[in-house]
Amino acid sequence: MPELPTNLKGFAHVYDRAHINTDEIIPARYLNVHEEAELAKYAMEDIDVDFVKRVKPGDFVIAGDNFGCGSSREHAIWALRGAGIKVIVAKSYSRIFFRNAINNGFLAIEADFCDNVKNGDEVELDLTAGKFRNLSSGKEASFVPVSDFARELIEDGGLLPHIQKKAAKAA
């Protein structure tokens, strides 16, 4: 079973605002495709046109409350992941976005960190210690632990592999 990574490092893209919605993360005008690489070209376009130019594989998005509210489009996760984002750290999430993240085996961490990080800072998610750190400033914060259920899905690689695994066990 692939374990959850214990330690992830990357650079921060900070959106210090509540209610960043899926229309901003991936506008509906691009929903006529669902290929991750294609969607990635337009990630965050309506909130930050330069995001795709700056983002590098392994980077983090840091945001405020209710991140990913609005439509159920999983395209929002795919666009961010396709663009290279490895982890999202938001104060809280909309229900469907959070669910989509878990179902995709994608790390969406709940922590209030906007005030402790600025664009371009190097950050680290230490899952073993349960700490989120700003390596540039030395500040750190705890986060809401990943639930057992979510951990199981993430470790299985997402909901569909998880279901297949369960079905194989039952057979």
């Binding site: 609005g70 439509s71 159920s72 489009r73 999983e74 179902n103 997402g158 569909l160 279901i163």
Partner: peptide, 25 residues
């Protein structure tokens, strides 16, 4: 696979929106 699936709850149903992975499952 749509967030406004909540609409149908007016008939006394549990009706909720999901993403594509949930829909696939």
């Amino acid at each position: 696979g749509d967030s406004h699936t909540t609409t149908m709850g007016a008939l006394g149903t549990f009706s909720s929106g999901v993403g594509s992975t949930d829909l696939a499952a």
